[in-house]
């Protein structure tokens, strides 16, 4: 493989991995705190992509690239803020009405509810925006690129990667350094003990959902910017891969989830490079099974301790 191709594919993988990483963060947070495989999370991501699409095409009425960098930055700031806040609220509403009543129910009940919510979100988007794929405005011009070691790197891709990195570090800081973050960690470790220590469990879980869904929303915006095309079915498999990423990284571990996301990006891209794209999904899941068999706590998780 030539160096330029290697660099190009590396960059492709970083961009794709950024999207998976952003979705995986929400998965890992929700799983970490209430042990729910939130199957609706992928569809929250999808709704985020459509919210951004609506903002760009209806109120902003944009159809092509925005070449003025200041204007572009302003539009991006607006879109990301609005979508992330809106999706955060959607996440909180879903938690409040679909998951919270089931917190003490059998383990499988919220899992099925999550799938039910996923169907509901898909159908709503299908009815509102139609069932065919929609073209999202390419606000980054396609010519905005530079050369690196023979590879052609787009500013759009660089922006996506840096944004994902920024959000990942911001989340780390939030979970690790703030009072709310500490409440989240303690709730995840032992809900009752946390409650006894004065942590407001409901509020903490709601905040977790807010942040997780907001990040998925950001992933949705990025998806639209990058691919220029969205549809109401994109959430499920993206969510499944992101969940795989979360497990690969060690569930509950935000750094691990991000790394898992990039890892899956790399598996997909390099299976494309070597002519095996139609096997990429099988490869992703095969890696998942192998990792779980040989290192059940995931790549960055702590070793499994025997229950006493």
């Amino acid at each position: 493989m030539e160096l330029s191709v290697l660099v190009q594919q590396f960059f492709n993988a970083l961009t794709l991995g950024s999207i998976y990483a952003l979705i995986a963060l929400g998965y890992t947070m929700v799983y970490g705190i209430i042990e729910l495989i939130n199957f609706a999370h992928g569809d929250v991501f999808m709704v985020g992509a459509f919210t951004a699409f609506w903002l760009l095409t209806v109120p902003l009425a944009l159809h092509g690239s925005v070449d003025n960098p200041v204007l572009l930055a302003g539009i991006l700031l607006l879109i990301f803020t609005v979508v992330m806040v809106f999706m955060g609220i959607v996440g909180v509403v879903i938690e409040r009405f679909a998951y919270r009543p089931l917190r003490n129910a059998p383990r499988l009940a919220p899992l099925l509810t999550a799938i039910g919510v996923s169907f509901i979100l898909q159908n709503i988007i299908q009815v509102v925006f139609g069932s065919s794929p929609r073209r999202t405005p390419q606000i980054f011009g396609n010519d905005a690129r530079f050369d690196l070691l023979g590879a052609s790197i787009s500013f759009r891709g660089v922006f996506i990667f840096l944004l994902a990195l920024g959000l990942i570090f911001a989340l780390q800081a939030f979970v690790g350094r703030t009072r709310l973050g500490r409440a989240m960690r303690s709730t995840a470790q032992d809900r009752e003990a946390a409650q006894l220590m004065g942590v407001n469990i409901n509020r903490t879980i709601a905040i977790t959902f807010f942040i997780g869904s907001a990040l998925a929303g950001a992933g949705g915006v990025v998806y639209g910017l990058h691919f220029g095309q969205i549809g109401f079915t994109i959430g499920f498999s993206a969510g499944l891969k992101a969940f795989t990423a979360a497990v690969l990284g060690g569930i509950g571990n935000t750094t691990g989830a991000a790394l898992g996301g990039f890892f899956i990006g790399f598996v997909e891209v390099y299976s494309g490079q070597f002519g095996l794209f139609r096997w990429s999904e099988a490869l992703v899941f095969a890696v998942l099974i192998l990792v779980l068999v040989f290192r059940p706590s995931g790549l960055l998780g702590q070793p499994l301790t025997e229950r006493a």
Binding site: M29, Y31, G32, I33, E35, R103, N104, P106, R107, V175, G181, M184, R185, A188, Q189, D190, R191, G250, I251, G252, N253, T254, T255, P296, S297, G301, Q302, P303, L304, T305, R307
Partner: peptide
């Protein structure tokens, strides 16, 4: 909230890191 098996996250020494 206590279901049949302990949860992996708890077993894994817990949660958000």
């Amino acid at each position: 909230g206590d279901d049949a098996a302990a949860t992996p996250a708890q077993e894994a020494g817990g949660a958000l890191q």
